[in-house]
Design a protein around this nucleic acid. Structure first.
Lengths: 201, 201
DNA sequence: CCACTCATTGAGTTTATACTCATTATAAAT
DNA sequence: ATTTATAATGAGTATAAACTCAATGAGTGG
């Protein structure tokens, strides 16, 4: 049976709401009222609640999509990485790609429904998994210092998140913090974890 | 002229509000309604607005007091520090002392009035200042790797903040994350920044 | 062409919470 | 003792934002 006009109509409206919400939330954070989202999407305020019974449902939908997308990007990129340096570079690439929404996620995590935490966990677990296997190998090869992997990971993530969370101190608010500081972040971190004989330039 | 009953009455009420707000905000975050604060403080809801025209004024008062207190603690402790190890230990001591409110501050910074940012800046500047001078000396002595100081500092703060911001992943929510992880945080970070000949045990 | 279904609408409702202000009680001044 | 000043009160107001639902009108099937 072919797709009816009504069905496409409905799914278009849904798509418009999702896309607009994603954009606006990325730009201004999650406390933008539903009425503004509706206006920006060019649909009525009521339409939002036809498609998403509550605001929470919309958020959960956005977060779950986001987790899937970013998770997929992380999975793909990790396959080509045989060195820490490469892995971290690719991690930064993915972060830069998703930077706006990702920053909001880590910034406002607590105000979001619990599903936000699982999105966060899924993303970090994916990174952690690839990080672990690469670092493990490098520690065995003797190119990286022998320290507990989880805390090496937390140091990296802590550093990157620090820049994302405090964007306003590091760059004018429209530019990408990751793009601006990627070289510095990378070289410092690698110099810290590598054995002296392997110093990164 | 001696202090009148009324004056003490008034200043007691004010004190009760401030102390209660500080405690409740530390426990539950800054979105607890003023009516709850009033009830917990044992004063009427209206009293809050007699002492603080707007909620923002109360927040600004709390933040400014907090900045002064924590700033003072940081100043005092920094005086006895001649090694990075010592400085970081003392930093962790101060963080542990102010942990509850400090965590809320870094967690909800953006929802707070702009004065929150200046409180944050004052605190970090104080730490950064002492950090710089100690690290500078150690780099010259050759015990610490020669890397840009600001990013060594951001790595440390990023790591510690990562634990504070993600408390729920690291410890049951009532305990202190700093107390639980201080040894690990310290030893890992020192091992990272020290030259190999100086490895920290 | 008509009856029916259903996505969309937006004015209206509900709820939460910051903030007001007339009233009250009591300390201070005369 | 009486008047005046003021700290405290809490029911009431204002506002913002999520959510509802009867009305609308366009697609669909006969």
């Amino acid at each position: 049976m072919r797709v009816s006009t009504r069905q496409t109509q409905k799914s278009n409206t849904r798509k418009k709401i999702i896309e607009t919400a994603y954009r606006i939330f990325s730009e201004k954070g999650f406390s933008v009222p539903t009425s503004i989202i509706a206006k920006e999407a060019g649909v009525s305020h009521g339409s939002i609640f036809v498609h998403f019974p509550t605001l929470n449902d919309l958020l959960i939908c956005l977060l779950s999509d986001f987790g899937d997308n970013m998770g997929a990007s992380l999975h793909m990129l990790a396959k080509k990485c045989y060195s820490v340096e490469n892995l971290l570079k690719e991690h930064l690439n993915v972060l830069e790609e998703y930077e706006a929404f990702y920053s909001r996620l880590i910034l406002e995590k607590n105000r979001l429904p619990d599903e936000a935490k699982s999105t966060f966990v899924i993303i970090q677990s994916t990174v952690a998994f690839h990080f672990s296997s690469v670092i493990d190998r490098e520690i065995e090869k003797g190119t990286v210092k022998k320290l507990p992997i989880h805390i090496l990971f937390n140091t990296w993530l802590g550093l990157v998140h620090y820049y994302l969370l405090n964007k306003e101190f590091f760059s004018d608010s429209n530019g990408s913090v990751i793009r601006r500081y990627r070289a510095e972040l990378l070289s410092t971190y690698l110099n810290l974890i590598k054995k002296e004989s392997e110093v990164y330039e």
